[in-house]
Amino acid sequence: MKLCLFDDHRIGAVRDGGVVDLTAALPWPHDPDPETAGGWRRLCRDHAELADRLAEAVAAGPVVPLDAVRLRAPALNPSKIIAAASNYAEHVHEMHAVQERTLGKVEEWMMSFDVFLKAPSSLAGPGEPIVLPAEILAAGHEVHHESELVVVLGRGGRDIPVDRALEHVVGYSIGLDITVRSPGDRSRRKSYDTFSPLGPWLTTADEAGPPDEFEIELLVNGEQRQRVSTADLLVPVPEIVAYASRVMTLRPGDLIFTGAPPGVGPIRPGDELVAGISGLGELRTSVTAGGEPR
């Protein structure tokens, strides 16, 4: 099932080129306030128990065309966005040249796999532009795209065994980890507002299939910049989930960006980006320049 958030954060399913509103089929009232997460995290946690009820509602409900609704990021106020660093060998190799150009040196500690945090406020939905801060543009820093498979946590947990990790995943989505190439902490450079585009929906794990069989592609202005298989992840999805859970307690609705493929490169105001993952759809967005701070 392809679950989505739309309009005033109503919960729906994508079917036949449109959206079926599932909000009334859920066993709790609709809460449009994104700060209180509108029941989304509860849906992530309890999806297995609600699956039959939702399937019946999808089959019976009217379909509203996609162009008649506003799709939102398929996440509401997650407790955290976790991101994996240095998780494709070719990307690690290319980052030596990127860092020499943008930093004047190679930060060797950044070439090994690890996880870090991005601000939940950096989330942006389908079609919502990536806004490049004026001060970053004025300083001449490059801002790069990183198209990634995103894991959406269902059941939370801590110290999750690798062989049980996928039981804690409700589904997958498409994400862009937008990154300022400058000195400083990763979390700060990747946490500006709109620097975590996500969407267009969440495809549940049962429909999406194994997480090591996805093909990721990114087009910028129609030109292919990135293409990779998740089979090439250095640390596969179950191990990422297990490792992160040894560091921090995972909560329902948390997001894990699984790592940047090779082919990262600069984005500029006016660019059009299309990130696609096989079976998950396409995330379309654009780039614009931000105004001066007020």
Rank of each mutant, 00 (worst) to 15 (best):
residue 2 K to V: 03
residue 11 I to M: 00
residue 19 V to E: 01
residue 22 L to I: 08
residue 25 A to R: 00
residue 29 P to H: 10
residue 30 H to M: 05
residue 34 P to L: 03
residue 38 G to P: 01
residue 40 W to E: 06
residue 40 W to F: 07
residue 44 C to R: 07
residue 46 D to H: 02
residue 48 A to I: 09
residue 49 E to V: 14
residue 52 D to T: 10
residue 56 E to F: 03
residue 57 A to C: 09
residue 60 A to T: 04
residue 62 P to Y: 01
residue 64 V to K: 03
residue 66 L to W: 07
residue 67 D to N: 09
residue 68 A to R: 13
residue 70 R to W: 10
residue 75 A to G: 09
residue 81 I to N: 05
residue 87 N to Y: 06
residue 91 H to W: 10
residue 97 A to E: 14
residue 98 V to R: 13
residue 100 E to L: 06
residue 102 T to W: 12
residue 105 K to R: 14
residue 105 K to Q: 02
residue 106 V to D: 01
residue 110 M to P: 15
residue 118 K to R: 15
residue 122 S to I: 02
residue 125 G to A: 07
residue 125 G to N: 02
residue 126 P to A: 07
residue 126 P to T: 14
residue 130 I to W: 15
residue 142 E to N: 15
residue 144 H to Y: 14
residue 146 E to S: 04
residue 147 S to C: 07
residue 150 V to N: 14
residue 152 V to P: 02
residue 155 R to Y: 02
residue 157 G to W: 03
residue 157 G to C: 03
residue 165 A to L: 00
residue 167 E to K: 15
residue 168 H to V: 09
residue 171 G to P: 08
residue 172 Y to T: 07
residue 177 D to K: 11
residue 181 R to M: 13
residue 182 S to Y: 11
residue 185 D to M: 12
residue 188 R to M: 10
residue 189 R to D: 08
residue 191 S to P: 05
residue 191 S to Q: 03
residue 198 L to M: 04
residue 199 G to K: 05
residue 202 L to V: 11
residue 203 T to Q: 12
residue 210 P to F: 04
residue 218 L to R: 06
residue 219 L to A: 12
residue 228 V to W: 00
residue 228 V to S: 07
residue 233 L to T: 15
residue 240 I to F: 09
residue 244 A to C: 13
residue 244 A to Q: 11
residue 249 T to M: 02
residue 250 L to Q: 08
residue 251 R to F: 10
residue 259 G to P: 01
residue 264 V to P: 01
residue 265 G to I: 15
residue 267 I to L: 06
residue 277 I to W: 12
residue 277 I to F: 10
residue 285 T to Y: 04
residue 285 T to M: 11
residue 287 V to T: 12
residue 288 T to S: 11
residue 292 E to G: 09
residue 292 E to S: 13
